[in-house]
Design a protein around this nucleic acid. Sequence first.
DNA 1: GTCTATACAAGGATAGAC
DNA 2: GTCTATCCTTGTATAGAC
Lengths: 210, 210
Amino acid sequence: MRDRTTRDRKTAILEAAARVIAQRGVRGLRIEQLAGEAGVSKALVYYHFGDRARLLRHTLALVGERAERYTRGPAGPDAGRDRLRELEDRLLLEFRDAPAVRENSTVWGELRAGAVFEPELREGLARASREWTEEVAGLLGRVAPGAPHERLTGAAERLTVLVEGLSTRWLIGVLPVGHAVELLREAVAAEAGALRRADDATPTPLCVFD
Amino acid sequence: MRDRTTRDRKTAILEAAARVIAQRGVRGLRIEQLAGEAGVSKALVYYHFGDRARLLRHTLALVGERAERYTRGPAGPDAGRDRLRELEDRLLLEFRDAPAVRENSTVWGELRAGAVFEPELREGLARASREWTEEVAGLLGRVAPGAPHERLTGAAERLTVLVEGLSTRWLIGVLPVGHAVELLREAVAAEAGALRRADDATPTPLCVFD
DNA sequence: GTCTATACAAGGATAGAC
DNA sequence: GTCTATCCTTGTATAGAC
């Protein structure tokens, strides 16, 4: 840890920033605290990143990369098992209680909340969520191969939105992870089931009663 | 508007606070801006509410009352129609694009986001969401009378969480209201359908394929 | 009750030495 | 590149006149 290079320090600053954001929120990020966490002076932060806004952008980039890493991990030995399971696992990634994951979820949540008031944040967010939705739609397509594209997208949107909502409640602490996972599993099963049913034979109307 | 009483001013301050929060967020609320919006001096705000924290509590109380009002409105002439419709309507209340509703949704969203970092906010939030979930579970119970309580609650939790997530995306502006409504309608139909099916005849396993 | 003026604190940002 | 010391703005809160 000691005898760090300049590059070490820059990344140390960004990692500290992510940590502080996860702890106090984007809007609660104080350069001083961040510097303390990283073990450097405030001035050094400004030296490397210019101003608060740029620091923030870099930090969010870091968080994005991290998410990539734990998301698109290598397929792993037991990859080709159950397709439904694969979908579930992808969605459940957001609920692993590892510090890094929790940190990332917290930051994304803050980002979403902040975007309500700061339009600049929206574009990146919109892109990320579009990509995520498409990925999930793809997985759903393998579960229910015959389903029309539009319905896949709809289901994917519902599931990803659900994950976001559950994640918020989890982070608030009003919803235990275990329960969140259970609720999500049931939702996945329901969506997949509905796609499957709509798929085969007669085009069942969406509303099956009354 | 002119010749206002003291009471008028107090409520004017709170309404202005709600407006500013909806515009800048709880954490972006500045006493000065608020006072300007309300057409009074900063000092008067402190005179009536003591400090920022107390002002905030009063404002949130106001928002809560408003939500009550537009939520538990009188049954209306066409009350006894379709039960499913009733449930849908209840959930869709959050998406009416009236200024007051939008303001309230924004503030609740901020509250949820803020609660991740400020534990004091959690209790009130937890209670409100519990009540809401129970209400929705009740409505679901009338749609699928035979369904066991636990499943009703689960479905209600998913639906309310979904509404919260959709609401956030709507307020961010990445999801048009119309689409949000559509997604929600489909989810309601799916949940109700699943409850209905699990209800009658053989206890179908949740996962109906493979 | 309501205002104007001001004290006081926190936090973002910079200057200048090393 | 990195630090210490400092500036300056902004925002909360109070004093005191009316």
